[in-house]
Amino acid sequence: MSEEKEAQSSSGTKNALELVRVDGVSFKYDAGPNVLEEISLTIQAGDFLALLGPNGSGKTTLVKLILGLLKPLAGNVFIKGRPVEEFEEWPKIGYVPQKATHVDPFFPASVREVVAMALFSRRGASLKKSKEEEKAIATALQSVGMEDFMGRPVSRLSGGQQQRVFIARAIVHSPELLILDEPTAGVDAVTQERFYEMLYQLNKQRAITILLVTHDIGVVTMHVNKVACVNQRLTYHGTHEDFCQSEAFKAMLAAGHLVSHRH
């Protein structure tokens, strides 16, 4: 890991603003077993946190609880110090869902329209975009290297390109926190590598805090500064350096829950 990343890591842990606090959260779906039990963790401003865990471990559920899409059975979630149910600054949170690239091939949305959706999600009747709004769309697409695809139908892009467009949609508001749920599923290794590098640049250059749900150990060793491991309970939460020496890491590796692409 570079010195720059280490410096960022230490500043992120020492004097950072707490963006997310998950406090003793438990959850289950209807009459099923507990999916999550007493999860507590924090995300500080500037963090690039990887959320790891085997399939069905509750990672996506935890993300949905943080976003207020599900209500915890016990415990609380706070975003920027406010209970999630009272939080209203949703444009400050960018989100790329797990199956974002499963685009309906008949949906006639252009790249520009997909990015504009998030920008205008709280706006009323006007269909005309202002110059500032056009610029915000162009800047977001530029950040992910998709500025030349503005007029293209999003359904005709490759999986990797679609993923970039969804990230542009998530960052068009200049969010403080970007949450990505397994964004590289189904994307080839080379594209994944470029993709993670792009996330690292967003974290470093635009100071966007990132929560990344992934199975990819390569990301953990190369790009993130914090790791949280979930398997119904929180099995690890700390820096990535300590994680690589931890029992949680060895257990996940032995069980084959982590994969490594070219990094």
Binding site: L67, L69, E88, W90, P91, I93, Y95, V96, P97, A100, D104, F107, A109, E113, V114, A116, M117, A118, F120, S121, R122, R123, G124, A125, L127, F166, R169, A170, I179
Partner: peptide, 23 residues
């Protein structure tokens, strides 16, 4: 439809992301 054009389109295209965006 025109008043809620953007919200309806977002919700139709990606319901989960639209909900996370506060819609």
């Amino acid at each position: 439809i025109l008043i809620n054009y953007h919200q309806l389109m977002f919700l139709t295209f990606d319901r989960e992301a639209a909900r996370a965006a506060g819609i």
